[in-house]
């Protein structure tokens, strides 16, 4: 591994994180928004792995499993909420959720 390679990974993960973040900001489909969040979390996972490698430390890679579990739980909840909403308001996108404001 060349010395700069880890930095490239870090940069990649940062970019992925940013893409996820921006995606969440620009997309209206709740499903896509959840996917964006997933993308952000996975970008973090990549970071952890990279750091673990850089530091020669196993825990960086172990943490990833924790994160994946949490991310899965989140997705489950998110999907459940979306489904529940879709029953009442089919085809609603995120911008339609404006009952509460002010």
């Amino acid at each position: 591994m060349s010395p700069n390679l880890p930095l490239a990974y870090l940069a990649l993960s940062a970019i992925l994180f940013a893409i996820g973040g921006v995606g969440l900001l620009v997309r209206r489909n709740p499903l896509v928004m959840i996917m964006c969040v997933e993308l952000m979390l996975n970008a973090v996972n990549l970071t952890f792995v990279t750091f673990g490698k850089m530091l020669d430390d196993i825990s960086g890679q172990v943490i990833v499993f924790f994160v994946m579990v949490v991310a899965a739980a989140e997705v489950v909840i998110g999907l459940a909420l979306i489904v529940a909403m879709a029953r009442r308001r089919p085809n609603a996108n995120a911008d339609d959720l404006r009952l509460l404001r002010g």
Binding site: G21, P30, V37, M40, V44, I77, G78
Partner: peptide, 12 residues
């Protein structure tokens, strides 16, 4: 949904 989306975002 709002809480979830934003919460997940901030968790990231």
């Amino acid at each position: 949904i709002k809480y979830f989306v934003l919460g997940a975002f901030s968790s990231a």
